[in-house]
Amino acid sequence: MLAACDTGAEEEAQETVAAADESEAIDLTGTLLRDFAGERIPAVTVIDPDGARLDLRDVDGPVLMNLWATWCRPCVVEMPLLDELAADLEGEVRVLTVSADLKGAEVVQPFFDRYELPNLPRWMDSGNDLANAFDGGPLLPLTVLYDAEGREVWRITGAYDWASASAREEVREALSVEAGDAPDTNPSVS
């Protein structure tokens, strides 16, 4: 899997969100993959801007976890869509967003203030332990759906239209299949 970030780059590379052309259209056609279905949620601890810690393996219930960064233009486009999804699916699935920004709260807090995302948590992994758990650094954004037992159901690489009805259907259908409520009629779709 290819990485979208060069962590060895000059420090300025982490600050490109302000320079991004916000009028530029982003293709929201991420790829749904089931290649890692059944794998456990990574044993990674993330923090929020106030210093609270969360061990991802301690999260109860289904989780839709998004790995993103403020300098990643597709991530920036996707965040308001995830915020809307989190509001719509509250009580069905927990949406966790985890920033891979090296500067942590210094850039994440202003990002959330600017975009007003009340339904998304501000978790951070400035050490990139989560990216490393995904084989050294995934293409960003990366969104992974985990069932109530912390097992991967599917993942979407690249930006995705989380505001669409089909996104909600995919999440709900996957969770109902995992719960045994419906048969999986097409398990090899990717």
Rank of each mutant, 00 (worst) to 15 (best):
residue 172 R to W: 11
residue 120 L to G: 08
residue 165 A to R: 04
residue 180 G to T: 03
residue 137 G to R: 10
residue 182 A to Q: 13
residue 138 P to D: 06
residue 174 A to S: 01
residue 177 V to P: 15
residue 119 N to H: 14
residue 167 A to D: 01
residue 116 E to P: 09
residue 142 L to W: 05
residue 151 R to E: 03
residue 168 R to I: 00
residue 122 R to N: 12
residue 182 A to P: 01
residue 176 S to L: 07
residue 158 G to A: 13
residue 138 P to E: 10
residue 117 L to Y: 15
residue 138 P to N: 09
residue 127 G to N: 08
residue 125 D to I: 13
residue 177 V to Q: 15
residue 162 W to A: 15
residue 136 G to S: 08
residue 154 W to S: 04
residue 117 L to P: 06
residue 140 L to N: 03
residue 138 P to V: 10
residue 155 R to H: 09
residue 129 D to F: 05
residue 149 E to P: 04
residue 181 D to V: 07
residue 161 D to F: 00
residue 180 G to D: 04
residue 153 V to G: 00
residue 142 L to D: 06
residue 162 W to C: 15
residue 126 S to W: 00
residue 120 L to W: 02
residue 147 D to H: 06
residue 174 A to L: 14
residue 115 Y to V: 06
residue 160 Y to G: 02
residue 115 Y to M: 10
residue 180 G to L: 10
residue 139 L to R: 14
residue 123 W to Q: 04
residue 132 N to Q: 08
residue 128 N to I: 00
residue 158 G to F: 02
residue 123 W to F: 04
residue 155 R to V: 09
residue 134 F to S: 00
residue 116 E to G: 02
residue 120 L to V: 11
residue 146 Y to C: 11
residue 139 L to Q: 04
residue 155 R to K: 08
residue 117 L to I: 14
residue 174 A to M: 11
residue 119 N to A: 07
residue 138 P to C: 10
residue 128 N to P: 01
residue 154 W to I: 10
residue 128 N to R: 12
residue 169 E to P: 03
residue 132 N to D: 09
residue 182 A to D: 05
residue 137 G to I: 06
residue 139 L to G: 11
residue 159 A to L: 15
residue 178 E to G: 01
residue 173 E to C: 09
residue 163 A to Q: 14
residue 115 Y to D: 11
residue 184 D to Y: 05
residue 167 A to K: 07
residue 126 S to T: 04
residue 158 G to E: 13
residue 180 G to C: 03
residue 124 M to N: 08
residue 178 E to V: 03
residue 120 L to H: 02
residue 128 N to K: 08
residue 141 P to K: 09
residue 183 P to D: 02
residue 116 E to R: 08
residue 137 G to H: 09
residue 186 N to I: 07
residue 185 T to N: 13
residue 137 G to F: 04
residue 147 D to R: 05
residue 157 T to C: 04
residue 160 Y to P: 09
residue 156 I to A: 00
residue 142 L to H: 11
residue 154 W to L: 05
residue 157 T to Q: 02
residue 173 E to K: 02
